[in-house]
């Protein structure tokens, strides 16, 4: 599965990506996870199965809801505590839950 993360510059979120990849490996989940900036996100959507937004760009949510609807994937804002403390497992769980629905 392909998990796309988005924050302003794609930098702070890339910290989280490493943690999530680790969590996925431990759980035995086969996942491709990558982070992009808010300006690239539109072009990357097609490759993703789920989109997670960093809490600092949650003002993009309503726009992203429209965009993700077109490609038919779920979107949500990452829980801000999990984001700040880089809890890769929690965020991975959030992504998996979203896709189940």
């Amino acid at each position: 599965m392909n998990i796309l993360l988005c924050c302003s510059a794609g930098m702070s979120t890339s910290l989280l990506v490493t943690k999530m990849e680790k969590a996925a490996k431990e759980k035995g989940v086969d996942a491709t996870i990558w982070a992009v900036s808010s300006t690239e996100v539109h072009e990357e959507l097609k490759k993703a199965d789920v989109l997670l937004l960093g809490p600092q760009v949650r003002y993009m949510l309503s726009d992203m809801e429209k965009a993700t609807k077109e490609v038919g994937i779920p979107v949500a804002v990452i829980d801000s505590m999990a984001y700040g403390l880089c809890k890769g497992e929690d965020v991975l769980g959030q992504a998996l839950n979203l896709m189940k629905r």
Binding site: C7, M11, S12, T13, L15, G54, P55, Q56, S80, M81, Y83, G84, L85, C86
Partner: peptide, 22 residues
């Protein structure tokens, strides 16, 4: 430990959302 390495490169989302300051 979590916030200092990125802070050296002026990135502080871990601190802002982790403390949280928000």
């Amino acid at each position: 430990a979590l916030g200092m390495p990125p802070a050296l490169f002026q990135i502080n989302e871990p601190v802002i959302f982790g403390m949280p300051i928000v």
